[in-house]
Design a binder for these strands. Structure first.
Lengths: 124, 124
DNA sequence: CGGTATCCAAAAGGATACTG
DNA sequence: CAGTATCCTTTTGGATACCG
């Protein structure tokens, strides 16, 4: 794969799959996907589970992922409103890849930490 | 894995592995890692290969990845200066994961595109 | 409850000029 | 060539208020 496949195509939008990659690896996208890998969640429930995410950002993240076909939104016509979010088949694939990367960073955190110390020390 | 493992730890920095994840999935981090998976590059060469990245951002990205122990920087003491960048063993592991995610988005782009059309249509 | 709309602060990112 | 320093624009994200 050449990086040229991932470049911006002019002064406009970058290539479409690059955008999907940004959605799933975004600050809140990662957390939403990993959490939904466990089970479906309601909006507020998801918000509490993730913690420290504003309504606005959670809404925005969920809408983006829904539009990309990764998350399924099930709004029940009841009062008070109840909306359940879950992963689609496509979303599950993405979430598993993201979790893989996330687990890798956990496993290798020690090495990264050592590298940082060496780096900082060499400059002090 | 609970998302709580990935949450911010107060009003300060988020957990360390979350930061590494952000480095490798950042806009330019992704492109640098994938490109270096091919072969080592000089600074300007890498800049041309990626395209449309400012010197500042490429420098910043490379320094971050070097500090995390993912990229090796080899500055030759010659005039004019020559600096080669390559992946470390750790960096290669990260790059392969990132490439995996990148390739997934390419493979599934059709499904994503269809989902978006359905989504947009349902709201029009 | 599950959002939307608006405003504002903070951070990312680019252009330019300069340096060893 | 491979950066650093500075300035400025754009984007991101949070707080708040309001709505069905």
């Amino acid at each position: 794969m050449a990086v040229s496949d991932w470049q911006s195509d002019g002064d406009e939008a970058m290539c479409p799959h690059r955008l999907v990659l940004e959605h799933v690896t975004s600050r809140w996208g990662v957390l939403v996907l990993i959490e939904l890998l466990e089970r479906p969640y309601r909006f507020s429930e998801l918000r509490r589970a993730i913690g420290r995410v504003s309504e606005k950002m959670l809404t925005q993240t969920l809408q983006t992922l829904e539009r990309d076909g990764l998350v399924h939104r099930d709004a029940k016509p009841v009062i008070p409103p109840r909306v359940d979010y879950s992963l689609t088949g496509l979303g599950r694939e993405a979430a598993e890849q993201v979790r893989g990367l996330a687990l890798w960073t956990q496993r290798r955190m020690d090495d990264v930490h050592k590298a940082r110390q060496a780096y900082d020390e060499a400059r002090a």
